[in-house]
Design a protein around this nucleic acid. Structure first.
Length: 513
RNA sequence: GCGAAAGUAGCUCAAUUGGUAGAGCUCCAGCCUUCCAAGCUGGAGGUUGCGGGUUCGAGACCCGUCUUUCGCUCCA
């Protein structure tokens, strides 16, 4: 149990690989940076987590409905959301100070320094002459004119380079202007690189004028553009929510830490539309509700904490993260943001369509405010996996590898073993399997000693092992062994269905909310 | 992106100054047996991440490249 965090993280990664939870993407070709595939057990666990979230959001709330929007969206969507402008920066690094700068900012700062010089000239002249005409001075003074021309030529050149997307030219401008790094004072620059967080591809035939299409960097916009469709056709009354799960893509500069930050990842989001002025109440409501949801997984209260954002994004008037204690420290798991009416208003402006709600109580129209809950499915997966993986010391000096997953989320809900591979025990076991497999994902194993089989199921988190022995043939009972306590009890075969339903069904977990 | 470390069987790791790639676990077939892994017999699995170079000879040395981990940086 007392493993070093680095070791635990290493174990999580190799355990994931060894048992088929997570593989590096296209591994036979050396993998692809920060892209991972879910294996046979990982896919089950991930699906169960997603189902639990979906049911707790959509099925348990009459005023929340789910949609499934496309990954491709109209390019204007990303202009309206601010993603195009916010993430199209040419960046350059100084090799000596290791600091990264926006190339356009460096050039603009250089230009403003020249402007300062002009202003100084003007100030100096103003002191010297009476009846000073600043406009005339600017137009006629040789030194000022020289500065002005310099600014003109720089900005013309810079604008052209930006328009042509000519990164080499931008670097050349920085070199020509002899711009130095404010920290190291050196001119030892890397090449200029364009970092656009959004992946792009083209839509339409190649020969024609193809449109640049972005892979969505967040799923939220799919909800906002469908706000009116859902509200009208679903006859939704404020407050109401729209939920969605799906893939999003970000071309991260640095993507690290296994599946914590991937370039392709899955979000589970719910946008809750409320009356303006009530958003803070709902913000607090969802903070509590979402933390409660995480606590229901039983990984431990001490594993979670809130982190309030001091610096708010351009669209938010309140924001916080639910952080989880990962093997590499507390990191963001879920974000809860009060997004105001920013998104819907932006889409109104860019689309020219009204995205409003007629409130019958107030007898007036308004753009609803939005409270968002947004959790990373892959991060949730990692939080559950890493918190569940344990090396347990047993009496007698033995150790066992235990994956104490929340039972309702485990890939296999129960495993069935014939104690021996003869005397009709396998046939008996398979009959039980057949009756239970319609309700639960079941495993079957008849290889090796039964103790070994228990350990194998412990390592993949199967909550219960059902063993058929010779007594089973006589009185139709089996033993059921608990993963966490290793305690066995004998149950009639007929009681198994209820036994499992009460302990491993999603319903059993939903009831704890 | 910069810096550091690493990459050998499914997993964890060996391999003397450069000299025939190995072990344990896993896996497969069978035997024995049976309620908490590690009994017996046999077997499978490797162009040592990839590509070059030096050498009579490279897992080891050099260069490049890919991937991973850590630190810095970034993360609307």
């Amino acid at each position: 149990m007392s493993q070093k965090p680095e070791d635990l993280f290493k174990n999580v990664i190799s355990h994931s690989k060894e048992y088929g939870f997570i593989f590096p993407s296209s591994e036979i070709y050396d993998g692809l940076s920060a892209v991972y595939d879910y294996g046979q057990l990982g896919a089950e666990l991930k699906k169960n987590i997603r189902d639990y979230w979906w049911k707790s959001m959509v099925q348990l709330h009459e005023n929340i409905v789910g949609i499934d929007a496309s990954i491709f969206m109209h390019p204007t969507t990303w202009k309206a959301s601010g993603h195009v402008d916010a993430f199209n920066d040419p960046l350059i690094d100084n090799k000596d100070s290791k600091k990264r700068y926006r190339a356009d900012v460096l050039i603009e700062e250089h230009v403003s320094k020249i402007e300062d010089k002009i202003n100084k000239e003007v100030e100096k002249a103003a002191k010297r002459f009476e009846n000073f005409d600043a406009v005339m001075f600017r137009r006629t003074n040789a030194r000022v004119k020289e500065y002005d021309e310099k600014i003109q030529s720089i900005t013309t050149r810079f604008k052209k380079a930006l328009n042509d997307n000519n990164l080499e030219e931008i670097k050349q401008i920085i070199v020509d202007l002899e711009i130095v790094c404010p920290i190291s004072g050196s001119r030892n620059w890397t090449d200029v690189r364009q970092f656009n967080l959004m992946f792009s591809t083209s839509m339409g035939s190649v020969s024609e004028e193809a449109n640049t299409i972005y892979l969505r960097p967040e799923t939220a916009q799919g909800i906002f553009v469908n706000y009116l469709n859902v509200q009208k056709t679903g006859r939704m009354k404020i407050p109401f929510g729209i939920a969605q799960t799906g893939k999003a893509f970000r071309n991260e500069i640095v993507a690290r830490q296994f599946i914590f930050r991937m370039r392709e990842f899955e979000q589970m989001e719910m946008q809750f539309f409320v009356k303006p002025g009530t958003e803070m109440e709902w913000y607090e409501y969802w903070k509590k509700a979402r933390l409660n949801w995480h606590l229901s997984l039983g990984l431990g209260k001490e594993k979670y904490r809130f982190h309030d954002h001091l610096k708010l994004a351009h669209y938010a008037n309140a924001a916080c993260d639910i952080e989880h204690d990962f093997p590499f420290g507390f990191k963001e798991l879920e974000g809860i943001h009060s997004r105001t009416d920013f998104d819907l208003k932006q889409h109104e402006t860019f689309s020219g369509k009204k995205l409003q709600y007629f409130d019958p109580e107030l007898n007036q129209n308004y753009v609803p405010y939005v409270v968002e809950t947004s959790v990373g499915l892959d991060r949730l997966f990692l939080s559950i996996l890493s918190s569940s993986l344990k090396e347990e010391q047993l009496e007698g000096g033995d150790t066992r590898t235990l994956l104490s997953l929340p039972p309702a989320l485990a890939p296999y809900k129960a495993a069935i073993f014939p104690l021996v591979k003869k005397d009709g025990l396998p046939e008996f076991a398979e009959r039980i399997m057949t009756t239970l497999k319609f309700d639960h994902q079941m495993a079957y194993d008849e290889k090796d000693t039964v103790g070994k089989r228990y350990r194998r199921q412990d390592a993949i988190g199967t909550p219960f092992c059902i063993t058929v022995d010779h007594q089973s043939l006589e009185d139709q009972t089996v033993t059921v062994r608990n993963r966490d306590t290793m305690v066995q009890e004998r149950l009639p075969v007929d009681a198994l269905a209820n036994f499992l339903n009460e302990r491993v069904s999603l319903k059993s977990l939903l009831l704890t909310l």
